[in-house]
Write a protein that binds this DNA or RNA. Structure first.
Lengths: 240, 240
DNA sequence: ACCTGAACACCGTTCAAGT
DNA sequence: ACCTGAACACCGTTCAAGT
């Protein structure tokens, strides 16, 4: 039991920083009131002075992530020029994605929150403002936020992932894998085809940056089309 | 403690049915080994004869939901004709959505699973087969599965939802709400505008069926365009 | 004001024992 | 074979008590 070495007083920010460090290092499942407290050299109950409970701690983690996205999108504290809604929205989504890649636990945390923290609304406010400035109606802006879905926050929340349950270490597992591939002929053929085309080794042939950008541009294309169909004359900003 | 009334022997299907009933009635959080067992008039440890643990029970719930989607998409046990990939894919997504609406806990469960159950792969296999039959390359099929994301399983996994944390019961909460609206001018204006246009009362003005279908058609439009750009001559099936 | 120890009400899961 | 009671190792959280 390491006593607290530094006399630095506890604070909400300190508690959240400790929790973030644990999540980054060992995953969200290890983020426990007792564990966070132990890392701070303190008992679990002390945390309740800075955080109203476990739920508030998790909301705090979300706020920290959203703040990091804001810094990522405006590196010098300045917002983008804002001449083209499409570039602005795209850059916001890509900035969010860079942060999500740094914190792989964040998408699951975001998805699991039952109540939406204010910081998330502030982020959506910025996205919507980009589009309204670009001449979107509120109706189309509303549809756009839904259409972007989790892409707006920088992740692809499909349940689809290339490796099925269980590893393929021994021969038994390999036989099981072959049987499974027989049940999934198209998915197997797709995996084989994509492997072959791809210089990149097995890791991350799925959910790569190019997949993300393909989907994002597909959505932005569609929104741009819907926008121009409703208002063929672009009010301000330049065309692509 | 109600003893087990019927002498019906326990079974995996029975355990899953009890768990599904609990989730439907009171939410996923109440699905507990002890609670499921109690509803079956049995002790928690008895469940381990039919389910290898809590994780296996949750995988079982996912399998039950996927089976329900399959039944929903092929009501009489027959698959669709398959003349147009777009109609086939669309109908599969809408069938999945009808099931998700019946089991509001399912999207969160699907998203939280760290390992993907076989039933989910079988579902994706069907979706991919629709597109390959429609002349898609494996590369475009792969991109399409990613692009559809959670829409493929019938839900819109954005974190966006209209009501911020906390109710607006008393005057204090209402003042807080006004302050919050001032921080979110565009979102507030959007909400007001959409409310005004919508005959439908407050409930579900967001995440409605029309929003879902708008996003789905936006994605299908984009995929169709990408498909036709790569292979301008449609191999089989009719054009829209 | 800030931190603590003991306790409470829950979890999932094990194990040896019953029938 | 199927079910059980007691126990274990964890949770988040409360409360009265320390300083």
């Amino acid at each position: 039991m390491p006593r607290r070495t530094s006399a630095a007083p506890l604070s909400r920010a300190g508690v959240l920083a400790a929790a973030t460090a644990i999540a980054d290092a060992t995953g969200l499942g290890e983020v426990t009131m007792r564990r966070v407290a132990a890392d701070l050299g303190v008992e679990a109950m002390s945390l309740y002075h800075y955080v109203s409970g476990k739920d508030d701690l998790l909301d705090g983690l979300v706020e920290a992530v959203m703040a990091e996205i804001t810094r990522e999108a405006a590196p010098n504290g300045v917002e983008r020029a804002g001449e083209d809604w499409r570039i602005d929205v795209r850059e916001r989504c890509l900035a969010a994605r860079r942060v999500m890649i740094r914190h792989p636990w964040a998408p699951a945390l975001l998805s699991s929150r039952t109540t939406v923290p204010l910081a998330v609304y502030l982020y959506y406010e910025g996205l919507l403002a980009d589009m309204i400035n670009g001449g979107f109606t509120y109706s189309l802006g509303h549809r756009a936020l839904h259409a972007l879905g989790s892409m707006a926050l920088g992740f692809d929340r499909g349940v689809f992932s290339p490796a099925p349950a269980g590893g393929l270490d021994d021969a038994a597992a390999e036989a099981e894998f072959a049987e499974l591939a027989a049940m999934l002929p198209q998915l197997s053929a797709m995996a084989a085809s994509e492997f072959h085309d791809n210089a990149d080794p097995t890791l991350d042939w799925c959910d790569s940056q190019t997949e993300f950008e393909f989907t994002l541009d597909l959505l932005l294309d569609g929104l741009q089309r819907a926008h121009e169909a409703a208002a063929p004359r672009v009010p301000r900003g330049r065309r692509r």
